[in-house]
Design a protein around this nucleic acid. Structure first.
Lengths: 329, 329
DNA sequence: TTGTAGGCGTTATCAT
DNA sequence: ATGATAACGCCTACAA
């Protein structure tokens, strides 16, 4: 393996000079800089990021902390797109990335989690799918030992940013559109997980909409699960004119239930997953660009590494109708 | 951060002794071993795997090389389950894991890929979704610089193993069952990707079945894509009595096409993904335990690290019928 | 501007 | 059985 030492020898300079060139330090003459770069080219040198991580705690080794929801199948698409988006952007920044799942740290304390992350020389973390009940992760964020970026969870401090879309507006818009395209003012809203960050925002939006449009709003928590949504629809679907769901998966559950009950109610979802294309119906939903959100999170982590303070970053969303032919293009 | 040095001090022994205890070296008295272990407990010491990786090239830092198929959406579930299964098992073995996607190395040479992996101190690789056309990866395997485990690609050498199910038998069984449950002897087989490893095996199985059952077999390549399968079904579906597909996604494409053509043909798939539950029909398919396959790959990597030679490991499969209620339990 | 040297946390090779 | 000590490849004061 070709090391920085070989490059130094080839370029006829000291190791530290090579290091300075590699890390874009100011005090290097353009001549030596060129000589070093030439040597790097010739030897096809790639710096060993493990050694770099060991010697300098500043270098970006980041962890993706994903809350894989095993109970809600088919939600995989979202996590996969998150991971893919982050990895791609991390490559640009030359960040090392390790992927972790929440379930790996079940029954672990914050300290244990911290020690694990430190044992991996992790300096930055991106958190996906955080809910208010995940105490350990919250403690982790509060301690500010690592730079953090939370997706869809408005937790900001000096070393923590949040990337999200405007869930309130998005929920308002998609529900309004669906209601306007149909008739009736009795709306069943199947909300997400109790204590979920986005859940409350969206409920608030629905309440505002109910005020604005003079709706009778029936709210139930569906835990983001298809089964819950299905059961709630069996229970309350008949009494309402329209079913608004907090996720595509729940919208599918609702729709299937309505079909089995042999009644029609317009349904709308949230997320814009391709899964929606397989239910054989056209449905309003909110499309999120999960890759872009995740890529932005990596950028934000880079900003935090550069000393910037944590902030809230709002990403755009889009109202769409997804149907089968959209999917298989 | 508490280091091995602190443990040594606490236990009143030398650093090297602590290291020996941690790595289960033989020549340590049980007394000192206990003392060290006690110190580890007290200080909540977790060894820094980055430093270990730097110091010793033997330690298991492994990379998951995933061929994310962006054109075939909804196949995400399989990759996600692969990744999840590997990470979980890797934790048991205390392996470090990084996840990489094929698209990250587009237009890169073997040597560039090797250098990248070396820069990450990677010693073992698990490869998912390899096809015969991925030259660079094949060269990587041949060079035997890293221990490799390929999923569903029968590439074995001293440092390369393969984990797979018996695709030949599985394809034979699921097709036979579907044909026996229905009538007719004209079978449309929509095969996977040309040059895909499993594709040829499965075609062979179908040919054998055709001989055994006296079938008229019509084979077309569908590239594992739903769209291809859909189009092929439009073209050739009518002429046959039964449609056998090389993946669930393709089975769905075929079924949708048949629905649009308003004709009925029994269809069977392959993989046992939850997606099958959303098509509103019951269908024979082959269920693979992707997590288990991936976990086995990690175990196999551990074996290779221990000096074992590469081998072929066959995992079990299961014939199932998936329908909506199976999914939402 | 360039080079020297100490350190990051381990592992591994020697002596002892 | 135990302990110095030199790597591993890189970063970074500090010195020249």
């Amino acid at each position: 393996m070709v090391s920085i030492k070989d490059v130094a020898k080839q370029a006829g300079v000291a190791i530290s000079t090579v290091s300075k060139v590699l890390n874009n330090y100011p005090n290097v003459s353009s001549q030596t800089r060129e000589r070093v770069q030439k040597a790097v080219e010739e030897l096809n040198f790639v710096p060993n990021s493990v050694a770099a991580a060991l010697s300098s705690k500043k270098v970006g080794r980041i962890a993706l902390l994903v809350n894989l929801n095993v109970s809600a199948q088919a939600i995989d698409e979202i996590d996969m797109r998150y991971i893919s988006g982050a990895l791609q952007k991390a490559m640009e920044y030359k960040f090392d990335v390790i992927t972790l799942f929440f379930f790996m740290f079940k029954d672990k304390t914050v300290d244990e989690l911290i020690r694990y992350l430190q044992s991996q020389s992790i300096t930055g973390i991106i958190i996906y799918g955080l809910s208010k009940e995940d105490l350990v992760i919250h403690q982790l964020i509060e301690k500010q030992i690592f730079k953090c970026v939370a997706i869809d969870a408005p937790l900001m401090n000096d070393s923590t940013s949040c990337i999200t879309i405007d869930h309130k507006t998005a929920q308002y818009e998609v529900a309004k559109k669906t209601i306007e395209e149909n008739t009736g003012n009795k709306v069943l809203y199947i909300a997400g997980k109790k204590n979920g960050y986005v859940t409350d925002d969206r409920i608030e939006a629905m309440k505002k909409l109910a005020g604005d449009m003079d709706l009778i709003l029936d709210i139930h928590y569906g835990e983001f699960s298809e089964k819950d949504s299905r059961n709630l629809t069996f229970k309350y679907g008949k009494k309402s004119n329209i079913v608004v769901c907090a996720s595509d998966l729940m919208a599918i559950g609702a729709m299937k239930a309505l079909q089995e009950m042999d009644i029609f109610r317009p349904v709308c979802g949230f997320d814009g997953t391709t899964l929606m294309g397989y239910v054989g119906q056209q449905m309003n939903t909110v499309r999120q660009d999960f890759e872009a959100l995740s890529a932005k999170a990596v950028e934000e982590l880079a900003n935090l590494f550069d000393g910037q303070k944590g902030q809230l970053v709002m990403m755009p969303h889009e109202l769409v109708q997804i149907n089968y032919t959209d999917i298989i293009v």
